[in-house]
Amino acid sequence: MLRAITHLPADTSRPAPLDTITLAFDERRLRRKVLTTKGGTEVLLDFPQVVTLEHGGALELEDGSHVEVRAAEELLYAVRGRDTAHLVRLAWHIGNRHTPAQLEMDRLLIKRDHVLKAMLEGLGAKVENATEPFFAEHGAYHSHGEHGHALLAR
């Protein structure tokens, strides 16, 4: 089994990857786990602290090769408000329920949950199905030593 020695951010120059690994939002934040690449190679990730594997980043393996990290497409809701103030209120209600959200200028993305959908529609939101990679904000109590991963605008 190959062993990952570090995580390289997306903007790091490196040779072509040995393979790729595609992970959902919840799977990209970890400290110790055996991951399986697209080609079936097992990689042991055992870091001293929790890391967030960045989309487009890579795991550097002990033999010097790299495995590129990809964000999986997920079943989400795209939430839109009538205007910016309404969208901010909707974001507050989502956050009040401790629900991970991707914050963008004109919409919020959350994982599909019929109860939240009904609540948001009751608050006047337009809620549509979306299937795309999810880059939610990490909570205020997570490590601040990481690079930001959520996108404000795409």
Rank of each mutant, 00 (worst) to 15 (best):
V43S: 09
H86G: 00
E132P: 12
Q102H: 08
D106N: 13
L44N: 10
Y77T: 00
G95A: 05
R29E: 09
L18W: 06
N96Y: 07
H86S: 01
D113R: 05
K33A: 14
D46N: 11
G145V: 05
G95Y: 03
V34P: 01
G57W: 00
P15I: 04
F47Q: 06
G81W: 03
L116V: 02
A24R: 10
P17E: 07
L123N: 05
A118M: 13
T131K: 12
E60Q: 14
D106Y: 15
S65I: 01
E104K: 09
A101C: 12
E42Q: 15
L116T: 05
I110L: 11
A78N: 05
L18G: 00
E68K: 13
H147N: 11
P100M: 04
R70T: 08
K33F: 00
F25G: 00
V79D: 04
E42M: 11
A91C: 13
H147T: 07
R107I: 07
A150L: 02
H93C: 03
D46Y: 09
P9W: 03
L151M: 13
L53N: 08
D11I: 04
P100W: 00
F134L: 05
T22K: 14
L18D: 04
R97W: 00
T20V: 12
V67C: 01
D63F: 06
L120N: 06
P100I: 03
R154D: 11
A130K: 11
T84L: 13
H7F: 08
R31L: 02
V34T: 14
G124T: 00
W92E: 14
I94S: 03
L18F: 14
A10M: 06
T131S: 11
L23W: 08
H66D: 08
G124A: 05
Q49E: 15
A72F: 06
N96E: 11
F47H: 10
T99H: 03
K38D: 15
T41N: 13
A91G: 12
A140H: 14
H114E: 15
M105E: 14
E42T: 15
L2R: 15
P15E: 08
G56D: 02
L103R: 15
N96A: 15
Q102R: 06
E62C: 03
L53R: 00
R107D: 03
H114T: 14
R29T: 09
A24C: 11
L23S: 10
D46W: 10
R80S: 14
